[in-house]
Amino acid sequence: MKITLAQIKKGQKALINDFNVDVIPLKLLEMGCLPGNTVELLQVAPLGDPLYINVNDSHVAIRLETARQIEVEIIKE
């Protein structure tokens, strides 16, 4: 089943599978948000958006609409 970064729960870790390069800002790629890297959802803002993630050891916040474009695979602990 395909899920996106927007669907994982707080505290869960996932592997980035793929995304549509055209809609993902270059700046996010440069932060390390790239296929093959792991991402952890650290915090969700009080109103459910944005998401505070740790990707490739970079701590960044992105909006849900961006997170929906990133396909991930949950890593079972």
């Binding site: 996010l28 970079s58 960044v60």
Partner: peptide, 11 residues
């Protein structure tokens, strides 16, 4: 225009 939002959360 494209709308996106990325912010680093520094320590």
């Amino acid at each position: 225009g494209k709308s996106y939002f990325v912010i680093e959360m520094p320590d």
